[in-house]
């Protein structure tokens, strides 16, 4: 079993343990250098394209000024202090966290259920179901945002359908009201990403030891019990990975907010990344403040990931 997760990453298989501790022979030394050569391009790219800009952003976040006239902030933490009074940022943070706590659990549970159904060897028309469930994952974020924007318009498909069924008497202004606009974003995220996670879970299900399932059956456990006490624990590393990926993706979400709702009404669907974009490029540009905002996003992501890994790493 070799499911890749940050958790299993730590635990190197036994077979390699001995070698590293011995005195290196010339051949081994050469090999070690070859190994470094293999790593360097990837490591340098990550260093230059991610760590260096992150460090630069930290410096930038201590500076203030409009446009190109940047100076050291006085006090140095001015931008961070200023953030405390920023109601719009607080609102976008609330929006983003709301998407996170509502959408991610629903999505991952649905994906688990669907993956489990699709994994049943006796399921008929399996490739059709798979195709149908996977296909949204192949659609670009901008594309689906615009499609959703169109079908949730006041005179769009959804209202026409609901009126036709008689479910509603008047068209609902989906994107014009805070509650429904947030709902549309969440529905969009569920539509686009559930199938994507099903793929990961299907992969994890292939790795489940069939004998453990047989054993559970022999012990008289029903399918639901088996699912919770045998299947889920074995999928834990993969679940952890999808939780971290989804959290990361939601916290950084930009495309849907920008294209589907334009952040409205009254900024109540705007995400943090969208606000960052507005502050940095659309309004009177304030890059120093934008950098400070980005550090707060970074800290949120890091804290959430740390919590998730801590929880996920606990073995039962």
């Amino acid at each position: 079993m070799s499911t890749m997760t940050p958790a299993t990453m730590l635990k190197r298989p036994e077979r390699n343990k001995g070698g590293a501790k011995r005195q290196l022979s010339p051949a081994a030394k050469r090999r070690s250098l070859t190994g470094w050569a293999f790593l360097i391009p990837a490591a340098v790219l990550i260093g230059v394209m991610m760590f260096w800009p992150m460090f630069q952003a930290l410096i930038l976040s201590f500076q203030t000024g409009r446009g190109t006239n940047l100076d050291w902030a006085d006090p140095l933490l001015f931008n961070y202090d200023r953030m405390l009074d920023d109601d719009v940022f607080r609102l976008t943070m609330t929006n983003t966290l709301l998407y996170l706590v509502i959408q991610v659990p629903i999505m991952l549970i649905s994906a688990l259920v669907l993956a489990n159904i699709l994994n049943n060897p006796r399921l008929r028309w399996k490739s059709f179901w798979r195709t149908a469930i996977f296909v949204p994952a192949a659609i670009s974020l901008v594309s689906y945002s615009l499609v959703f924007r169109t079908i949730f318009a006041t005179d769009g498909l959804v209202n026409d359908f609901l009126l036709w069924v008689g479910f509603i008497d008047l068209p609902i202004n989906w994107l014009g009201e805070t509650g429904t606009a947030r709902l549309v974003i969440i529905l969009g995220l569920l539509w686009r990403w559930t199938g994507f996670n099903v793929i990961f879970y299907l992969a994890a299900l292939q790795n489940i030891d069939p004998t453990t399932l047989e054993a559970a059956k022999m012990d008289g456990a029903g399918p639901i019990r088996t699912f919770f006490s045998v299947t889920i624990p074995q999928m834990k590393p993969m679940i952890l990975l999808t939780v971290i990926m989804s959290t990361n993706g939601t916290i950084q979400m930009f495309d849907e907010s920008y294209n589907l709702t334009r952040g409205g009404p009254a900024n109540t669907t705007m995400t943090m990344s969208h606000y960052l974009y507005e502050v940095s490029f659309q309004n009177n540009p304030n890059f120093g403040y934008g950098a400070a905002l980005s550090y707060v996003i970074l800290i949120i992501v890091a804290v959430l990931a740390a919590i998730q890994m801590k929880v996920g790493d606990k073995r039962d």
Binding site: P53, S280, A291, Y295, I297
Partner: peptide
């Protein structure tokens, strides 16, 4: 997050 590295 990408947003954090975008400007630099």
């Amino acid at each position: 997050p990408f947003a954090a590295t975008m400007i630099p």
